[in-house]
Amino acid sequence: MDYLKAFLVGGAICVIGQLLMDLTKLTPARVLVAFVTAGAILQGIGIYQAIVDFGGAGATTPLTGFGYSLAKGAMKEVKEAGLLGAFTGGLKSTAGGIAGAIFFGYIMTLLFSPKSKK
């Protein structure tokens, strides 16, 4: 059941992204930024947590999940360390994801060369 829920939520988020690319003139980079921002705003107003509770990794894996972690981390840190936490909390909670992306990205550039599209 968890798999099905994750599939539905994750799939629905990707459908929104595909529609934005097909129906609007937004470039992929802008869709990316919009998704992160949307995730952060939805968490800020208390909606995204409910989506995560329902869809699990289906909601945390897409880019909106990154925005969710940023917002969640910032809010948690504000509670624990005061207002400065709004600036430090987001990066603390997403540090693993960011460092992982840099590290694995670097490894891949050492192992592979880009290929042309077919």
Binding site: M21, D22, T27, P28, A29, P114, K115, S116, K117
Partner: peptide, 20 residues
């Protein structure tokens, strides 16, 4: 060259962007 032009004018191929 397809690959050098994509990199310069649109997106680097590594980004895997969909073409309209």
């Amino acid at each position: 060259h397809f690959c050098s032009a994509e990199r310069q004018y649109r997106f680097p191929l590594e980004q895997g962007v969909q073409r309209p």
